[in-house]
Every structure is written in structure tokens, then in C-alpha cells.
Simulated assay, not measured.
Amino acid sequence: MNNQLPNFYSETSRKTLGWLAVFGSAFFFYLATLIIRWAEPYVTIESAYFVFARLFLGFIIVCITMAFQNKRLHPRKYHYLIGRTLANTVAVFCFYKAVELGSVAEANILNMTYPLFVAIFSWFFLRGQRDLLSLLIVAIAFCGVWLVLSPGKITPDLGNLWGLCSGITAAIAIIYLNISRRYHDSQTILFFMFGLGTTLMLIFFHDSIFIPNTKEFFFLFSCSVAGVLGQYLITYGFLFVTAVEGSIISSSRILLAAILGPILVAGPSLTISGWCGALLIFAANTGLALRKV
């Protein structure tokens, strides 16, 4: 009996650490968007530059990590690596663009619709994962998406459309990631995601990228650190929690954004319909996670 106590406490502490890491990742992903909004009164930096800075910092960290661990790249299926990179880069760009043009809270909520689109894409492209109940959950969740977008309006806000686009492309990135993991280790995937993503942003948005002054560098670096730290925390956290626990905790970013957005960035509070939509999306993400058990 006494021999089992240390193992129990050890397992409990690892799980607690995993929960904290995944929740921390949700917070830092949200913090990155707050920094973009906080920067607006002081500097003029386009969202493309924030994306470039985040990818570039991630690439430097991956290269340093691989050098210290003496690891080599082992690419096998290049089309999966490229697909993951393209989808992830577009998703982050759309997400940051949604923050630039709209509400921080709504941008985060709509970005977290990606599990819904994963379920939809899986229905069409992964026949072995078709699930009628999951599709019903998604249908209910899209009522929540409509409530967040623009209930009662003829056309939704442009920022919200960018946010929804980020959810769609993030779902594609997740599917590519799941497939790519069958053939590649994490470092190889991250190397291509950050390295190729940085190159693409430099090619297509070079006009938005410049040598920053001290104040501009501060906001770019802070946002990048928050984004990359969120990426590493979620990777670390999932080592100690189940996929279901991790998915539910990650979705807490919906509630963080809804509660803290108006307080931290003086943005507009969610309407009653917006709150109902956010809770529907959160409940749907939780339901889809539980369906995986």
C-alpha cells in the first residue's frame, strides 16, 4: 500500500503539470492577440509582420534545440510537411488579421471553431471516422457560430470573416499534422512549419517587413514569444494529459476571450447572443472531444 502512494502522487503531479501546461498554452495564445491590440496606439505594424516574427523566432528556437540535441531532419513525405506549413501559416495570418480588424474576443472564439471543421472534413475525407452524432454536434455548434458572427445583420463584420477563415484553415493544418506525425518526428515538422512559413511570409509580405525601432521590436518580440511559448506548452502538456482533457482545456480560450477581452483591451463586451454562441461552441468542442473516448 505504501509503495503505491509515491506512484499515485507522481502520476497526479504529472497530470496536474499537464493541465497547467495546456491551460498556459491557451493563455499565451490569447496573450499574443492582446499584445497586437495593445500595440495599436503606439506603433503601426501590420498583422503579416507579427506572423513573420512569430515564425522566425520559432525557427531560431527549433534550430538551436536541434543543435543542442544533435538531431537531424528526417523528411519523408514532403507534401504533408508542405501542406501543414501552408495551412498553419494561412491560419495564423487570418487569426491575427481578425484581431487587427475586429474584436479580440470574437477572433479567439471563431479561431477555436477548428475542431468543428476537423469533424466536417473528416466526414468527407476520412471515411473511417464518420460519426453521425459528431455531425449533429457540429450542426448545433454552427448555431453558436452564427450567434457570434452577426445575428440580425445582413452581412457579418470583416474581422469575423477572417476569424472564421482562421478556424477553417487551422482545421486543415490539424489534419495535415495528424497525418504527418505518422511519418515525421516533431522537430522535423516544426522545422518545416517555422522555416518554410517564415520564407513564405517574407516572399509575399516583404513590403510589410522592415527593421523595427526599439518600441516596434518590443511588441513584435513579445507577441512572438507568447505565440511560440503557447506552441511549446501545448506540445509539452499533451505528454501528460489525454487528448480529451487537452482538447477541453484548450477550448477554455473561448471563455478566457469572452471574459477578459472587454477588461484587458477595453473592447466591446459580448452581447447575450454572443455569449450564447461562445458557450455553444465551447460545449460542442467538449462534446466532440468526449466522442473520441
Rank of each mutant, 00 (worst) to 15 (best):
F52L: 14
W19R: 03
V118T: 01
L133M: 11
I174A: 04
A283R: 05
A289L: 14
T198P: 03
A283H: 01
N285T: 01
L158T: 08
P151I: 15
K292S: 15
C63K: 05
I249M: 10
L31D: 06
Y236G: 09
I82T: 03
C94Q: 14
T199G: 12
S269C: 04
D185T: 07
I61Q: 02
T113D: 07
L196I: 06
T85F: 10
G261T: 01
L229E: 12
K71P: 00
I36S: 06
F93T: 13
L5A: 14
I61G: 07
F210P: 06
G18D: 04
G144C: 12
F240P: 03
Y236C: 13
W19E: 14
L256G: 00
F68G: 05
S122W: 04
P6L: 12
R14A: 07
V225E: 12
R37E: 02
S103T: 03
V92Y: 11
Y9K: 11
L5F: 02
F8R: 15
H184I: 11
I189A: 05
A170F: 13
G18W: 06
T286M: 14
R127N: 00
W162V: 08
K215T: 15
V293A: 15
G277K: 00
T271G: 15
H79F: 11
L147V: 09
E40L: 12
N88K: 10
I259F: 00
T33W: 04
G152A: 15
L280R: 07
C143W: 13
A266L: 10
I168S: 08
S224T: 15
L31V: 05
H74R: 04
R14F: 11
G197K: 00
G197C: 07
S10Y: 14
T286I: 12
V228A: 13
F221Y: 11
K71H: 06
E106W: 06
V228K: 11
V244D: 08
A105H: 00
L161P: 02
T155A: 13
L133C: 02
I203Q: 07
P41I: 08
N111V: 00
M193Q: 14
F219K: 14
F194K: 03
S222C: 13
V22C: 00
C276Y: 06
